[in-house]
Design a protein around this nucleic acid. Structure first.
Length: 215
DNA sequence: ATCCCGAGGG
DNA sequence: CCCTCTGGAT
């Protein structure tokens, strides 16, 4: 079973993850604040590779809310059909574009409340935009961050809000801005959901998580 | 707690 | 076949 890491261990974990990836950028392709917001909203329960494949054709012709509205829901669906949950997402992106024009002059707002008031934008998506675009040290907790945080003991919690609080309290200040990228990359390529690659893990000696299924 | 939902991997 | 993927709304 996992346990909460000490401060010293936290520092060591992030130091190693940073050394392995000094300048993580995130792997969701986008052209500006609007396309970042849309890309993150589209990425719910979908791989970023799947989202990038769709947005590579979509964003060049719809990189502003006004252009997105010009395409419309029926025009948008063909681009994002290969992403899961596309009916809800199409409706949300169009309504979200309308609200950006009506309330925010077509710009992406910088407050959590304004972001979360947009359809299809919840806590996690708002945190990504606040972190990646507006530069706040917010801690988005997605499936990777939740799993990796609990397994490694970087931050433990029964739900995403608890893990988010844990990260805010335990991640050393110098790592807060980029910590979510490191946790995601670690979760995507090493600490994967099904069969974690513990034998080649950079932080194996600091981690108390053990695969239960014997080989 | 349940629904939305296609693609990729094992 | 089953599980997972940078969740959100009801």
């Amino acid at each position: 079973m996992s346990r909460q890491l000490s401060y010293h261990e936290q520092v060591e974990v992030f130091a190693r993850l940073r050394a392995a990836n000094p300048q993580p950028k995130g792997e969701l392709e986008h052209l500006n604040a609007f396309t970042l917001l849309v890309a993150v909203a589209l990425s719910a329960q979908a791989t970023d590779a799947s989202v990038n494949k769709a947005t590579r054709d979509l964003f060049p012709i719809a990189d502003t809310p006004q252009k997105m509205l010009a395409i419309g829901e029926e025009g948008l669906i063909p681009y994002i059909r290969t992403i899961g949950l596309y009916r809800n997402k199409a409706k949300n992106v169009i309504r979200l574009s309308e609200l950006l024009v009506e309330r925010h002059g077509g710009e992406v707002p910088s407050s959590r409340a304004a972001l979360e008031a947009l359809p299809g934008v919840g806590r996690k998506t708002a945190n990504v935009v606040l972190n990646m675009w507006w530069g706040f040290p917010s801690q988005p907790v997605d499936t990777h961050v939740f799993r990796v945080s609990n397994r490694t003991g970087v931050a433990m919690g029964a739900d995403v809000v608890a893990v988010e609080r844990g990260l805010e309290n335990h991640v050393p200040v110098e790592y807060q801005q980029l910590s979510h990228h490191w946790l995601i990359l670690h979760g995507r390529y090493t600490c994967v959901a099904r069969k974690p690659k513990c034998p080649t893990c950079l932080i194996r000696d600091l981690c108390t998580f053990e695969e239960k299924t014997p080989e």
